[in-house]
């Protein structure tokens, strides 16, 4: 009579530790080592997702081991699914570069948003936060911020970005870097602004150096 191991194409020595191992490795009877890699990866993945776990694994490590395990599966089985999963987690880790998904902003970015005083809000008696729809004037301690929307159209004047309660816009921007009203990508704008600043700084530096050289010509 055939044993469970025979039926499932398992080696006699493979300890059937859990159903998960059998399922992932059993089909083609791969070397035992590979089962361990995969099961370790899955275990660490599960552990890191468990908030009560004492040994927290940094998510980066989990991502790495998980993709390692998946590529192992992919090479040995040529598994379409593994390749697809690999693609997915890679594109997610890279913030879906080239994709439509917008990643969220950092806490530093939130801190750098322009604060607006209630008295400076246009039509302040009727203005409300587009997210919670509460009037700004009804808020006893309003903390209002302006997003840098349409900054490129503004010539010299103050930017006319959309205004939100900080409390409301923060959780949104952490998931998605676009303005809820006009879909302006605040992170992209911030990046262009930084690049421009760096460009100007570099130019200034170069000019400085040139002047220095000229200086040597005159006085040297």
């Amino acid at each position: 009579m055939s044993t469970y191991e025979d039926d499932h194409n398992l080696r006699e020595n493979t300890p059937p530790r859990s159903g998960r191992n059998n399922r992932s490795g059993g089909r083609s009877g791969q070397p035992q080592r590979n089962h361990r890699t995969l099961s370790a990866a899955i275990d660490s993945f599960i552990e890191s997702n468990n908030p009560h776990s004492s040994a927290q694994v940094p998510s980066q490590t989990v991502h790495d081991t998980f993709s390692q395990a998946l590529s192992l599966l992919a090479t040995e089985e040529g598994s379409e699914l593994a390749l697809q999963l690999l693609d997915t987690i890679n594109s997610e880790a890279n913030g879906g570069a080239g994709g439509e998904k917008h990643q969220g902003v950092t806490d530093e970015f939130l801190d750098s948003l322009e604060r607006v005083k209630l008295k400076d809000v246009p039509n302040k008696e009727t203005a409300d936060c587009p997210i919670c729809t509460n009037l700004f004037v009804d808020n006893e301690y309003p903390l209002l911020v302006r997003l840098p929307c349409n900054v490129q159209h503004v010539s010299g004047k103050k930017s006319k970005g959309h205004i939100f309660d900080m409390e409301c816009i923060a959780p949104w921007l952490k998931m998605n870097s676009t303005c809820p009203l006009c879909r302006f990508d605040v992170v992209a704008a911030d990046k262009t602004r930084r690049e421009k600043l760096e460009e100007e700084l570099r130019k200034l530096k170069e000019e400085d150096e040139e002047e220095e050289e000229e200086g040597w010509d005159v006085y040297g």
Partner: peptide, 8 residues
């Protein structure tokens, strides 16, 4: 889906 906005 992807184009949801909390202002909607």
């Amino acid at each position: 889906k992807d184009n949801w906005s909390p202002a909607l």
